[in-house]
Nucleic acid binder design. Sequence first.
DNA 1: CGGTGCGTTGACACTCCTCAACCAGGGTGG
DNA 2: CCACCCTGGTTGAGGAGTGTCAACGCACCG
Lengths: 270, 270
Amino acid sequence: MIQKPALRLEGAVATPSVPPAKFDERIGHGQRIIDAAFGKLSPRRIPAGTRLFGSDGGGDLVYRLSGGWACRAVDWLDGRRAIVEIYLPGDMVGLEAAVLGRPVDEIIAVTALAVQAIDAQMLAELMAQPPAAAAILWLRAGQQRRVDRLAAALARRDAHERLALMLVDLYDRLCERGLVTGSSYPLPLTQQQIGDHLGLTLVHVNRVLRSLREKEIVSVDRHVVTIRDLDRLRQLAASARTARGFLTERSPGSREPRPNRAGLDALILS
Amino acid sequence: MIQKPALRLEGAVATPSVPPAKFDERIGHGQRIIDAAFGKLSPRRIPAGTRLFGSDGGGDLVYRLSGGWACRAVDWLDGRRAIVEIYLPGDMVGLEAAVLGRPVDEIIAVTALAVQAIDAQMLAELMAQPPAAAAILWLRAGQQRRVDRLAAALARRDAHERLALMLVDLYDRLCERGLVTGSSYPLPLTQQQIGDHLGLTLVHVNRVLRSLREKEIVSVDRHVVTIRDLDRLRQLAASARTARGFLTERSPGSREPRPNRAGLDALILS
DNA sequence: CGGTGCGTTGACACTCCTCAACCAGGGTGG
DNA sequence: CCACCCTGGTTGAGGAGTGTCAACGCACCG
């Protein structure tokens, strides 16, 4: 969602459906505006482990990472933690904190960071420019989409697949930004943090990584990921959604047959 | 995120931080505008099992459910499915499909639906009105937030807790809309679908439900949920995030100590 | 009636977690 | 300069939580 709003901001009501090409160009334009705005700011350094936001507040700012990794996490009282999102250099951080009052999850610096921060007013100025607003909403939509896929993977894929998914995803994102050379990239997360992200134990992450290394698919050593067989890695990750119809037969014990729901419908449809 | 944009639409640039009270009022106003817009539309009926959107397209519409339940799902080629989001009467459906071109996940009618549909142009007209735009972004932010919590739960909570989480969440949402009377409400989901949502097997969902019934916490029978001990149910669900500082001691093998990351920082911070 | 969708239950297998020990590297203080 | 500690990683043994397979019952529907 959230693309439409920006389109509307122009004032004109119509523009019923914008051809994607033109839209992309708009986004690109917005990106440049944002880059220009951030360009004026001198980066600030933040040490590793710092909480940028938290339940204690401090969330009227929006950051852009110019260097370093960060993550958004949910903590429970029993000490467990789930890492919901991972931010790479170039990402904007804290957009979601700018909503709903501010009681969002923690955002934590995984490595030392170089960030540029804008306050509510600067954000306001950006959002007042339709292309920039479109670009920001676009970015945020992409982030949200990634959480969707994470949830789906956590629900239905096993440890190997989830790990492959993460490694491929990070690879692709870093590639887009020109932060990868060759087939390897740095991964500053600890195995504990990887586990928190993928819903696994540190121990199990370790074992699965070993397994992937032994299969010569990908190796993670000393915080450097080296992809040995991108095809097989992608195949493992295969977040492939069904083209639903390509599927002649559902798996045994088929799903989604014509449901027998007369009773249910009556139950709900008031 | 996404609250700010709307604020900005007013034209004025400043309004640095809006008191929450005033903001809520704005949202309420926007809600009324949206309700009015939908009020004119005659509901259409859609049979259970229908796909509202899918990889085959059909996503220039945004629906509002006036009756029935729907869900957003991700399918894999091996026949597995993950249900990422559940929509209840009153929810707007397909907002996220209005972004990113449109290749979003499938949206499926769980029961027969009564929906009101608006097309791109009507959506445009709504988004042109700042309060309505604010309300829509607000709604969407809430949906996203729910996916975040789902991902976190899938990563770190066990079957009992996830089930409790879901039952409480649905209960609260239905209460808000006045769709609950007493301590029970209808739940049209199949155990298979519950499993797809929570990352469990139909069989395991069944067992856990039995366990919860035997503990007299909550019972699900014939698609009716009856809450027997709301306190204990909430406690199980306890999505309680740490106030981080309230926590004198982290669990054994403590997490998040001052990290030893000189090397890592050098690795990344170009 | 038979067929089908959905729920229920049991036996068993496997993934993943827990506990625990140990190693390696990098600070830090004597 | 060298013990020492702390963090992060590696590995093994055993166990808990879930998944798989399979059978059966119960409603609903044609």
